[in-house]
Design a protein around this nucleic acid. Structure first.
Lengths: 328, 328
DNA sequence: AAAAGCATTGTAAACGTTTACTTTTCGTGA
DNA sequence: TCACGAAAAGTAAACGTTTACAATGCTTTT
C-alpha cells in the first residue's frame, strides 16, 4: 500500500541501499545520474519516509520533547517560541505535551511518552515532577533540562531566573520609590521559586530596616483569582502602600480588586508584577514589571540540548530587568 | 545497552512472544503465573518500550498531531485544552507543532513531520495551508480536520464558528443597543473567516437600513497593534459610535487607543470583541464579547478523530453567545 | 598489461516489536 | 488409559530503514 524505498529501488532500477543514500543526501556515495533517477521515482510514487523505521534502526530521533504545565499563566508561549526558533534552525522537530495543571498522572504520562519515543532531549517547563518521575527521567538516560524552575537540592540542571534576586530587586525598587509597607500576593510557597522570592523580599525589607508582617504575604498559585483574593484580604483600606503580584495575571487581579475598592493605582497603592508579558502593557494603568527573559530561556535551553552530553549541562540564570510603567 | 523484550524473555525464561503478550495485556493468552514472572523481570531490568519498533510493526501510532499557528492571539490554548482532555481519556498522545505565524516554510515542515510520523490524525488550528500542502495532506491519507478555520470550497472538513453569523449578530447586538455607525477593526479579509465576518456585518447593517462606508472597515491581522492602528485611523473624534474588534486583543487595542484619545467607553464609543477569552474580563471596562466555544472545538475535533474514517467527517459549527459586559 | 586505487553500487544484517501459525501442556470425559 | 480440546507458550516472519562490508567497474600508475 504505502510506498517504500523498495518500490523506489525497483522503479529506478537500483538497490535499496542506493535509494537510501540518495534520499539521505549522503554525498559522495552516489552519482548525480542515479540520484536523479531515484529522486524522480520517489517523487512520482509519492514517497514518504517512515520515521518509525528510521528511528528504530538509527536508535535516535531528531525530536525534542517539551513538557508544559497547562497553567493559566501565560509565559510558556514565549519560552516555546524560543525553543521552536532554535530547533528550526537545526532541523529538529519539537513535540509539546501538556501535562495538565499539576496533575501528577498527566505529568507521568507525558514523561513516559517522551521517554518511550526516545527523543533526543527533554525540556520541562515550570514543572517540578514527583520524585518517582525524576528517578524515571534519570534512568532513561535522555538529556533533560528544566526551564523556569530552579531547585535547591537534587542537582537537576535548569535554566531559570534567579528568583531570590527577583524578589529582592522588586522589593528594593519599591522601597526606593518611597514605599515602606509592601505586600506580596498569590505566591506559592510550596515551590522553590515561591520560597526564594519571599526570601528575597524579606531580605530587601530587612536590609532597609523595614518591618514585615505575615499577613502581608498572601499565598496562592500565581493566578488572576488569587490576585483578587489577596487584595480582598488586604482590604479596602489596606495597611500596605505597595503590592507585588507574583505573576502578571496575579498583579492584574490585585489591581482590579484595588480599583473595585476605590483605590487609585499608583497613588493609593503601587503595584508591581513579575513576568512582564504582553499582559502588563494592555491594561490601564500599565503595570511596572520585573521582566523575565522567557524567549531566551527557551532558546538557551534548546542550544544546551544540542550538546547532547548531559553531564556538561550547567544550570544557569537568565537575566531580568525592571520595566517601570504607570502602576508605580 | 538498552533493555529489550529479549532480555526480559531470558530473565523470565519465556519466549519473547510471551513477553510481548504480557506487556501488551493481551488477556487470555498467558497465565497469571508467567505474567508475574515477566512483569517482575521487566521491572527489575528497567524496561522501556520502544515506540518506534511498535509503530513500525503495527503500522499505526496512537498519536494525534496538532499544528498551531504561533499567533499572538490567544485562543489556541483553550482549543488545545479541549483536545488534550479528550485525548487523555482515550489514551492517546498529542504532539503539538508550532508553525510560526503564517510562515509557509514552517507550516510545510510541521505538516511533513506529522505525516512522516504517520500519526493517526492531524488537527490543524487556525491555519489555511497553501494548496501544495493541502495536496500533500490528502495524499498522505491521514485523517485530518481543521479547527477554527472554515472554507468555502475545497471541501475540507472543519469545526469552527459560523463567522458570518458572528459578524451578523455582533452587529445586530450593537444596532439594538441603539448604535448606527459601527466600525470593524483589524479584520483580515484575505481569510475566509475575515470575509464572512465582514459579510455578516454588512448584511446586518443592510437589514436595518443602515449605511456603511469602506473606511469603517479597517484591515489587519487580529492583533493588538492592529486594533490600535484601526482606532488611530478612525481618529480622535470618530464618526463611529461603536467598533467591533475582531479578536479580544484587537478590541483591547481599540479601547486603549480610544481612551488615549480621551474618549469614554462605552458612552462615547461602544466596543465589542470577538473571541471571549479571559482577556476581556481582566481589562477595565470589561469588554462585551462574542464568546466562542474554543474548548468545545478542541474536544469535538478530537472525538471526530476517533472515528478514524475520514470520509465520515462532517464540517460543523460550534455555538457562540454574546456576553454583555461594560464596554457596551 | 597488470596492479592499485577510487567511485559507485549491491548484499545482507540489524533495530525491537507484534502476531499468524505451530507446538506443547494439561485437564476432562469416556 | 487414551483421545480430545482448550489454554499456554513458542517459532519465525514482517515492518522500512541504515550501514558495514563486499563487489564491480573504471581510471590511473607502474
Amino acid at each position: 500500500m504505502t510506498v517504500t524505498i523498495k518500490d523506489i529501488a525497483e522503479t529506478a532500477n537500483v538497490s535499496i541501499a542506493t535509494v537510501s543514500r540518495v534520499l539521505a543526501n549522503k554525498e559522495g556515495f552516489y552519482s548525480e545520474k542515479t540520484a536523479a533517477k531515484v529522486r524522480q521515482a520517489a517523487e512520482k510514487l509519492g514517497y514518504r519516509k517512515n520515521t518509525a523505521a528510521v528511528e528504530l534502526v538509527t536508535q535516535r530521533s531528531k525530536v525534542i520533547g517539551v513538557i508544559v504545565s497547562a497553567t493559566k499563566t501565560n509565559f510558556a508561549n514565549d519560552i516555546i517560541a524560543g525553543i521552536q526558533d532554535e530547533a528550526f534552525k537545526h532541523n529538529l522537530s519539537v513535540i509539546i505535551l501538556y501535562a495538565g495543571e499539576s496533575d501528577p498522572n498527566q505529568q507521568h504520562r507525558a514523561l513516559q511518552t517522551v521517554i518511550e519515543r526516545s527523543v533526543m532531549g527533554i525540556l520541562i517547563l515550570a514543572i517540578r515532577p514527583v520524585d518517582d518521575d525524576i528517578a524515571m527521567l534519570r534512568a532513561a538516560n535522555i538529556p533533560h533540562l528544566f526551564l523556569s524552575t530552579s531547585f535547591d537540592s537534587q542537582n537537576l540542571p535548569f535554566i531559570a531566573s534567579d528568583d531570590f534576586r527577583i524578589g529582592y530587586q522588586a522589593t528594593d525598587f519599591l522601597i526606593k520609590k518611597g514605599h515602606k509597607k509592601i505586600g506580596i500576593a498569590a505566591i506559592d510557597r510550596h515551590t522553590y521559586i515561591g520560597t526564594q522570592r519571599v526570601l528575597g523580599y524579606q531580605r530587601a525589607m530587612a536590609d532597609h530596616d523595614l518591618p514585615t508582617k505575615p499577613a502581608w504575604i498572601q499565598d496562592g498559585h500565581f493566578t488572576y483569582d488569587d490576585g483578587i483574593e489577596a487584595m480582598k484580604t488586604f482590604g479596602a483600606k489596606p495597611e500596605l502602600d505597595a503590592v507585588i503580584g507574583t505573576s502578571d495575571l496575579a498583579a492584574i487581579g490585585v489591581m482590579n480588586q484595588a480599583e473595585t475598592f476605590g483605590l487609585n493605582v499608583p497613588t493609593d497603592l503601587a503595584i508591581m508584577s513579575i513576568d512582564g508579558t504582553q499582559m502588563v502593557k494592555i491594561v490601564r494603568p500599565q503595570i511596572t514589571s520585573v521582566t523575565q527573559s522567557f524567549y531566551e530561556m527557551g532558546s538557551r535551553g534548546m542550544k544546551m540540548m544540542l550538546q547532547r552530553d548531559m553531564t556538561k549541562f550547567e544550570s544557569q540564570y537568565t537575566p531580568f530587568r525592571i520595566d517601570e510603567r504607570e502602576s508605580t
